[in-house]
Amino acid sequence: MNSGAISILLESDPVEVAGLQARMLSLLAEAGLDPLASFQFACAIIEAVNNCVTHAYLGVGGQPIALSMLTGGERIDVEIRDTGPPLPSELLQPREMPGGEAMSGRGWPIIWQWTDAVSYRREAHENVLTLTRRLESAESPRETQ
């Protein structure tokens, strides 16, 4: 795998998020994830970024979202920062996938299911959500930090 750090700055615009997913797939593959694991982790990252757009910034465009991807050892960490209000603590607990025809509520379960660890901290008026994926995990156990 390749070690290193990559930083990506976005605005809270759905079109920018759309471009991010394809880019993440490529970056995660380069970092050593297989195609399915890359897709899974990219989905989790995009759901987290979607949450920044729709919940942290309530759909207001032009707000900053910063991604940092750190690779090295046996894991990939992706840190997502926004300047919205603090995340409600109940969002930071693993949750069940909603029932079949639900129109919403799948984002956080996707994040939890397709990462190996999720951690959150509030730092200098920013939300900092870190998603971790181990390089060799296919179906991954969860850990909360």
């Binding site: 997913q21 990219a42 979607n50 129109m103």
Partner: peptide, 16 residues
């Protein structure tokens, strides 16, 4: 190749 939960909701709404 790329779908997120918003895309899934579009499909569920269309199914309904």
């Amino acid at each position: 190749e790329i779908v997120d939960s918003s895309g899934l909701a579009v499909l569920v709404g269309s199914l309904q």
